[in-house]
Design a binder for these strands. Structure first.
Lengths: 354, 354
DNA sequence: TTGAAAGCGCTAACAG
DNA sequence: CTGTTAGCGCTTTCAA
């Protein structure tokens, strides 16, 4: 673990001073050092395996080439780790190392984490949530930090969140384009309701309106955010009289959609022949494994993770805090077309057993 | 991001020297400083919000209170992130920050990562794989590092892996205890075969032998490691003549088990009345959501992650490299009993159409 | 019992 | 063009 060779060793071997070595290796050759000298220094450094001690450098320059990533939760939503992965990649590409801190959302831990990160003089902090939320950033979060999958309640920080409304628009529009007019929204039932719930509802209503479809309140149902909840909620709309029954379901997430599949099977409805379904999240091991594979909307976790550290490091332009969105950037949620959407059945959903 | 108050500020406020402050705050009161002075120093430090600069301290002491966690892959196996979570928790509990580096298994990136970590003078490195593997640790991995979910091909490092054989024993024993005699093993078909495959097979055979059951080679089938593979493999054994057909399935993982559920449904077999199934991995969003909930074996990711950093930091005893297992510790895989195991059907699996 | 002084390894002024 | 000098903020002898 002990680093031995230092800049002095290089200097001695190359027959120059430590300062010269530093200048050459950092390409601060503002005062032109002869190419031969430069070459020699570089070669020696290479040969003896010199690597600068980042601590010493950081102490001097106040930049440590490290960033902090504090997240409220990591393991709960499996696909959200893509944010971490992307953040780490972006950090590496920019010569930075990433400190990962998981706080379970505990405010005391968050404060401690921020303090510890500051004590280590990180060059910046990204504060990440695993769901799109409005948050009060932890006390002491330094200016210049960026929020990931979270928008600051009082502004003041750059932030990136998924464009849930836009994603819902894409999903519901696909259904409308396929010819559907009676489209249900299987929403979730949680307290507090996540921002995404309302935003996706807004997108759903927006498309209906644009298509001249009057929203039917009976087609907006809620269920717990799991397979059972999806099955129950779907059953409720599927049991409606034939002329009120939806021909398509827009589900808040893929788990709900999985439940909707079960309900459709139970009601003898084939997907997509009798019923079209669109999910949200593009959750691995669910969306693509369902039968038929589920058309769904992907959350741009990767893009958001990368965006956050690139803005943090100044590689990408920081959003204008006085702009329309107040410094929060909406990342598009692309529609992933698979096989669960088709035209509505000709004479309303059939009812075939077995 | 700039830390302002330093030890000198505390010293000035408290009317002592920086050295005294350091002594007091680090509890190196070997030379007894009067309690009143100590108290005053501590209070001042607290009041003005002093936190030592870790870089400067590290430069001096050669300990940085940081560790590196390099993993081959993070997002691919969702449940494996529990290792990271646990490692991070253990690091925090011991006053350390964790650098996360993801290498995608690229040897060049691994070397770079190790070098970068060394340049930052981490106190130790854990090298983690997302599947139980035998690995050649990256060149330059410092002595004292610990391997996680990986055993070193040539020894030399402390390491922790799941006890796959033991987990299989627990699973198959549960089946035998329920009365089953014809138990199939749905193995995976990959090249190279993961260590876990052979180890679980060994556990399976061990239980059969102990129970006086002659293993039937026709009941050891392989499929690709996904739902489709599980369905196909399960179908193959379920189509066997009634007297050769298994009454229970031990599946290499939960995805295969999910496929086995589909096959059972297709064959008109109820679980667990007609067919018992045990999985492996206890994969969230699968195992518990299946109908009926799947009895399976949990991978001790959490325990392994914690173990790794605790050994790394010397909080937990390091395994003896000259011991029986050569420094690799087997972490138990507990059986999670849910509802997919029952006694075998009285007259062989029935054949009822849904 | 406490303070002064010497670095940890590096970079950034400033001389030469 | 290059070397000397002075720290970055802390810990740790060594003297007083």
């Amino acid at each position: 673990m002990t680093r031995r060779i230092g800049i002095k060793d290089v200097a001695r071997e190359a027959g120059v001073s430590a300062a010269t070595v530093s200048l050459v290796l950092n390409e601060r050759a503002t005062s032109r050092i002869p190419d031969v000298t430069q070459e020699r220094v570089r070669r020696v450094a290479q040969d003896i395996g010199y690597a600068p001690n980042t601590l010493a450098r950081g102490l001097r320059t106040r930049r440590t080439q490290t960033i902090g990533f504090v997240s409220d939760r990591i393991a709960t939503t499996p696909y959200a780790v893509r944010m971490i992965e992307a953040a780490q990649d972006a950090a590496r590409e920019n010569g930075h190392l990433l400190f990962l801190v998981n706080t379970d959302g505990d405010p005391a831990l968050e404060r401690d984490a921020v303090a510890a990160l500051q004590a280590h003089q990180v060059d910046g902090i990204v504060y990440a949530c695993m769901w799109h939320r409005a948050v009060e950033p932890p006390a002491g979060l330094p200016a210049g930090s960026v929020l990931l999958d979270a928008r600051p309640v009082d502004g003041g920080f750059a932030s990136v969140v998924p464009d849930d409304r836009g994603g819902a628009v894409a999903a519901v529009q696909a259904l409308v384009d396929a010819g559907h007019r009676r489209i249900a929204y299987l929403d979730i039932d949680e307290d507090p309701l996540p921002l995404a719930s309302g935003l996706r509802l807004a997108g759903y209503l927006e498309v209906l309106e644009a298509a001249g479809i009057t929203p039917d309140p009976a087609l907006h149902v809620r269920g717990t955010s799991d397979v059972a909840g999806g099955r129950d909620a779907a059953s409720r709309v599927l049991e409606l009289p034939a002329d009120q029954r939806p021909t398509a379901l827009f589900c808040f997430n893929d788990r709900l959609a999985m439940g909707a599949y079960a309900a459709a099977r139970h009601h003898g409805l084939a997907i997509p022949a009798d019923l079209s379904v669109v999910g949200y999240d593009d959750q691995q091991l669910i969306a693509a494994e369902l039968d038929p594979p589920l058309t769904t909307v992907a959350l741009p976790h990767h893009e958001m993770g990368r965006w956050a550290v690139e803005v943090l490091l100044g590689v990408r332009e920081r959003p204008d805090p006085d702009g329309a969105e107040g410094g929060v950037v909406l990342m598009p949620c692309p529609l992933v077309r698979r096989d669960s959407v088709g035209p509505p059945p000709t004479r309303g959903p059939g009812r075939r057993r077995g």
